[in-house]
């Protein structure tokens, strides 16, 4: 079987093995393997400092890996860096447009750098600007753009010449729901033209919405990989969500639920909400009965598929636990 193909003989956009990047003693990327088929959206999901940006920078030829190899769009990352660069585009985590220039000037610059002669550069720039709904802000300095507009301009700059592979590093961090939806639409339109997208995010619903497959990254390693359905299934049969009437009863409720379900109970950021994994569905009614018996009033409850949020907590939680156990075994 060809090395650049996946198991279904699909050509791969990215094939990486054992990528490592150290900053001093810190291993920011600590052995990452990837096989991303062309034409798909692949999500990197992970907390701050997980190594998402570093991995993307390696794959976009901005950083040299200390160990490991990768082929991007069939070209060796190190030996054929120029060929890789001509096929990919990176929209970095921090806006890479020039704040001092206006919208159209930013795009004209990129168009000229991509090889358009001066006049067609202008034409292409305004075409793309219009497609991204920014024509009214064409002559405004990017400094004066809103966060969402800036982000769209940044992605627009990557689209002057449509890349075969686009790296989108946290494209919606800090955006309101409307701007987020706009970006999601852009990603969907882009994928429909055949571009592969590697997207990093801290938002689980974003990965859920857009990504065909997701890699959960923590401490520079992939700790889980699969479709969002597979990741959810790997966590357990379902989740019990409970909302209480009185937030002051939550600690007690947590204790009761974890006894009744013999599973860890997650407190959500909402002060009246808790959730827990179920091993069997019947345990849910027993758990609710336990709350009732202790005069804890429940305003709402539901049984559901685990959300990626819970997947993430479970995965990273487990990891922390197993590390603690290892340490315990040593001492």
């Amino acid at each position: 079987m060809n090395n650049d193909m996946d198991t279904n003989n699909q050509p791969l956009a990215i094939k990486a093995t054992g990528l490592v990047k150290c900053f001093g003693k810190h291993r920011a990327v600590n052995g990452i393997d990837l096989a991303i088929p062309q034409g798909t959206v692949y999500g990197f999901l992970g907390p701050n400092g997980a190594g998402k940006t570093t991995t993307m920078k390696i794959l976009a030829t901005l950083l040299k890996p200390d160990e490991g190899q990768a082929k991007v769009m069939g070209h060796d990352l190190i030996k054929e860096a120029d060929a890789v660069r001509s096929r990919v585009s990176l929209t970095g985590q921090f806006a890479s447009v020039d704040e001092d220039l206006n919208g159209i000037e930013n795009l004209i610059l990129i168009a000229r750098l991509m090889g358009y002669p001066s006049r067609s550069a202008k034409k292409r720039a305004s075409e793309i600007l219009e497609a991204f709904g920014l024509q009214d802000a064409a002559k405004r300095q990017v400094k004066k753009y809103s966060g969402g507009m800036r982000r769209r301009l940044d992605i627009a700059a990557s689209m002057i010449v449509r890349p075969d592979l686009l790296f989108l590093d946290e494209p919606t961090t800090g955006l309101d729901p409307r701007s987020r939806n706009q970006i999601w639409d852009i990603v969907r339109a882009l994928v429909s033209t055949g571009t592969t997208v590697l997207l990093s995010t801290q938002y689980l619903d974003e990965a859920d919405q857009l990504a065909d497959r997701i890699a959960v990254i923590d401490h520079g390693k992939i700790i889980a990989e699969g479709t969002s359905g597979e990741l959810k299934a790997s966590v357990g049969s379902g989740v019990l969500h409970v909302r209480l009437l009185d937030p002051s009863t939550r600690d007690r409720a947590q204790q009761l639920l974890s006894e009744a379900l013999s599973a860890p109970v997650h407190l959500s950021s909402d002060p009246v909400a808790l959730s827990a994994q179920l091993t069997r569905t019947k345990a849910a009614s027993e758990a609710l009965a336990a709350l009732d018996a202790n005069q804890i009033e429940v305003s709402q409850f539901s049984l559901g598929q685990p959300s990626l949020d819970e997947v993430f907590l479970t995965l990273t939680g487990k990891r922390a636990d197993s590390e603690k156990q290892k340490e315990g075994a040593k001492s």
Binding site: A60, R85, S86, S89, G92, S96
Partner: peptide, 11 residues
């Protein structure tokens, strides 16, 4: 400002 990251990733 990160502007150069884009430039450096261009062919």
């Amino acid at each position: 400002k990160g502007t150069f990251d884009r430039f450096r990733s261009l062919p």
